[in-house]
Amino acid sequence: MTNKNYGRVTGGRIMEAYYDYPHLTNLVYEALDYGMESIQVFPNQVRRAKELLDGRPDAPAVCAVIAYPHGTFLPEQKAYEIEDAVQEGADQLEVVLNVVNVRSGDWAQVEREFALCRQAAGARTLKFIVEAEYLKPEMLKRVCGLAAAAGIDRLCTSIGVYPIAKDGAEAAAGAEAEDVRLMKEYSGGKMKTVAMGCIDSPERFMELLNAGADYICTEFAAQILKKL
């Protein structure tokens, strides 16, 4: 497999406070160079990214992150933001799930969130970040089932910015191979799985692909693809 082949299952992203306009330009050209499937940007950078891509036929999809990075919004608020991002030109939408509702067992509200966002996104690719690091397997299973029933296209594992306490130490929570395996199993082939969060080396990239991830999204996409 060449790095262009890997590019087709890779998303590049820049989601930090210190990234400026030249970083966005750089991401766009890296995505073109490596044939990346998509780039994820803040909604207020979608228009700029689309202008840079200038309608090229080999352009990656431009994905707007919604309710990012914490998903504690009402479904109506997320739908409003999705409609706004679509107006800006977003090809894909990546929504952070309201994980508080999941942890509270408020499944009716989880279903409403999937339904309203699906409606707002129309035919565009709709992904949800489920923050698997906060979910017990039974919660993750139910989320996958409801998302598949609502016609969600892809589920993403993590955000990768929040530190989490595990085994007495604190570290950034990111994609885990076990979460990818569970999400693949629970999705029953109805949705694609995206590994995301703290993927910073070719080894991690391959580990998650081998665990069954359909796509890998990472801030380090170009550096990783260059080494593969």
């Binding site: 989601m15 930090e16 406070a17 940007v41 803040f42 909604p43 207020n44 950078q45 992150v65 990012y68 990075p69 914490h70 608020q77 409003y80 933001e81 706004d84 991002a85 800006e88």
Partner: peptide, 17 residues
């Protein structure tokens, strides 16, 4: 919060709410 990545239109709507 915390990246300010929403469009101005969405920020204004949330301030209104």
């Amino acid at each position: 919060y915390p990246y300010g990545g929403m469009t101005t239109r969405v920020k204004c709507e949330l301030v209104r709410q």
